[in-house]
């Protein structure tokens, strides 16, 4: 079963991402949530997720700091940003820090699937 961690300070956005994951049928999966990067790190330690979907702009620890911390310990987990920040500069920073993909808000189920599924398929998930 695919273990997914959804990190966003907006409860509504976490709910939307969970709804989209159901809609695009990624198969059997479980989801844990965190409100920011600091809490996300604790969830990574506790649940060892296969996939992390994270916002960028969050209090306490933002998404890029969170990604950097995750990559210090874990190269296996697939990490995608779900964010409004889709500039070239930020995409480059995300790639350089170890992100696997970026989904720009607002998204549709189709655009979400198009970004996520190739990453999962390539990893055999």
């Amino acid at each position: 079963m695919l273990k997914v961690l959804v990190v966003d300070d907006s409860k509504a956005m976490r709910m939307i991402v969970k709804r989209i994951l159901r809609q695009i049928d990624i198969g059997e999966h479980s989801i844990v949530e965190a409100e920011d990067g600091a809490e996300g790190l604790k969830q990574v330690d506790e649940h060892n997720p296969d996939l992390i979907l994270s916002d960028w702009n969050m209090p306490n620890m933002n998404g890029i700091e969170f990604l950097g911390k995750v990559r210090e310990e874990n190269q296996r987990v697939k990490f995608g940003f779900v964010t409004t920040e889709g500039s070239e500069k930020m995409r480059n920073l995300a790639n350089d820090t170890g992100a696997n993909f970026m989904i720009t808000k607002p998204f549709t189920p189709e655009s979400f699937e198009k970004s996520l599924m190739p990453v999962l398929a390539k990893a055999g998930m």
Binding site: S10, K11, A12, N57, T84, E85, G86, K105
Partner: peptide
């Protein structure tokens, strides 16, 4: 929550810290 997500109305990649 609706207003929280609506911050995306303003975002063009140049206001990353807007909230």
């Amino acid at each position: 929550e609706v207003f929280n997500v609506s911050v995306g109305f303003f975002s063009d990649g140049t206001t990353p810290d807007m909230r």
